[in-house]
């Protein structure tokens, strides 16, 4: 009896693009850019995932969700691998993912604005003259200000809009 051909990798990528991020279900794991590689090693499908933050509590759930999704599509032999390097960056969030974030009420990251551990930009920020412009995801106004660079999940900062007065999450750069 002939065994059915294993699914094409493009098919697997498509399945993974349907798996929502457990903390921000508006975007998928592929939108987030954390699936680094998918390949067949013999008859085993190997999916390589990189964590967003070292301590992100969603990591375990993400692995379970990947496994459940692929098994539901008939993949039986499956292995998940963790890859740390190169470290995940918000630059890998897809254009489509950024649109979905905005529609969901989260301001997408402004590339190239991650903290770098040097203190040069701090004085400007303290003086309120930061050139980081974040548009309010609710009304589009750029009259916004940072409340805290830490937010409801490790990947987000807390901002507020001084035009519509709504608070919102900003997906901060890393």
């Amino acid at each position: 009896m002939a065994t059915p051909a294993p699914p094409e990798l493009a098919q697997v990528w498509h399945w993974l693009s349907q798996v929502p991020d457990p903390e921000i279900p508006a975007i998928s794991l592929t939108d987030l850019g954390i699936i680094r590689d998918v390949q067949w090693q013999g008859d085993t499908l190997v999916v390589t995932v990189t964590p967003t933050y070292s301590g992100c509590p969603a990591t375990t759930v993400i692995n379970l969700d990947i496994e459940a999704a692929l098994r539901s599509h008939g993949v039986e032999k499956l292995r998940l691998e963790r890859r740390l390097s190169p470290p995940w960056t918000t630059d890998w969030i897809t254009a489509e993912g950024r649109d979905k974030l905005r529609a969901y009420g989260i301001a997408p990251p402004v590339d190239g604005t991650a903290a770098d551990g040097r203190l040069a930009g701090r004085i400007a920020r303290l003086a309120g003259t930061s050139n980081l412009v974040i548009a309010c995801p609710h009304c589009g106004s750029t009259a916004t200000e940072r409340v805290s660079q830490f937010g409801s999940t490790p990947c987000k900062a807390s901002w507020r809009c001084t035009a519509c007065l709504e608070p919102f999450d900003y997906f901060k750069c890393i």
């Binding site: 070292s54 390097s85 190169p86 470290p87 991650a114 660079q149």
Partner: peptide, 27 residues
Amino acid sequence: PRVAEIAAKAAKEVAYHLERSADLVIR
């Protein structure tokens, strides 16, 4: 390389820690 990759990952997070703790110590 195992050390280098952990450091590269952690450095991104610690940059935010340092920025925040420095800001608050000054304030």
